[in-house]
């Protein structure tokens, strides 16, 4: 961990080690599914369904708890009653951790932008890496989000991520 956070893996003799590390993290994302609403069905289809099989990209969608997960997918409407639970489980995940916000509801409130009980955007609660627009997004869009996140992991400097330098979210289809 010290090597990663000090940035020693990005330069000098240890650079190949850092790249190997990124490469292996990229293809072994353990994903915690936070299925909330309609998008959860599309996510389930994209992950488990035989038609859009996401396991071929190296994503393991069945960790039993957030403590084993690298990636959390918030798919669906987040209500004010649910938001504290999401924050709590996000904090239980080990670093480095990534967040995909799937669907308009999780991005910004979506069709419930004027509802009294819906949290307008999960980015008020946890930091988001990839936004997937759509209501619900097609499974292809979700798979695109996974691929874009994997590209980011490949070219990422763990030290910068640790310190939050140069960080900005990806928007699928932008």
């Amino acid at each position: 961990m010290g090597l990663m956070t000090s940035g020693a893996l990005r330069k000098g003799p240890l650079k190949p080690v850092g790249e190997l590390l990124n490469y292996s993290r990229k293809y072994s994302l353990w994903m915690f599914q936070w299925g909330l609403a309609c998008c959860a069905i599309e996510m389930g289809v994209a992950l488990a369904g035989p038609r859009y099989d996401v396991m071929r990209l190296g994503v393991i969608p069945f960790p039993a708890s957030p403590r084993q997960a690298d990636l959390i997918v918030i798919s669906g409407t987040v209500t004010d009653k649910m938001a504290p639970a999401i924050r709590r489980l996000y904090e239980q995940m080990p670093d480095p951790k990534y967040v995909i916000s799937m669907g308009s509801c999780a991005n910004c409130g979506g069709p419930y932008w004027d509802s009294y009980s819906v949290t307008k955007g999960i980015d008020q609660v946890i930091p988001v890496d990839v936004y997937v627009p759509g209501c619900p997004p097609r499974p292809e869009a979700f798979i695109q989000a996974i691929v874009m996140l994997q590209e980011r992991i490949q070219h990422e400097d763990p030290a910068d991520r640790w310190q939050g330098k140069g960080w900005e979210p990806i928007v699928v289809g932008q």
Partner: peptide
Amino acid sequence: IGYMHRGYEKLTEY
């Protein structure tokens, strides 16, 4: 229940 309450009945009024 109530973790997915989105307030449909109120929203329909608007």
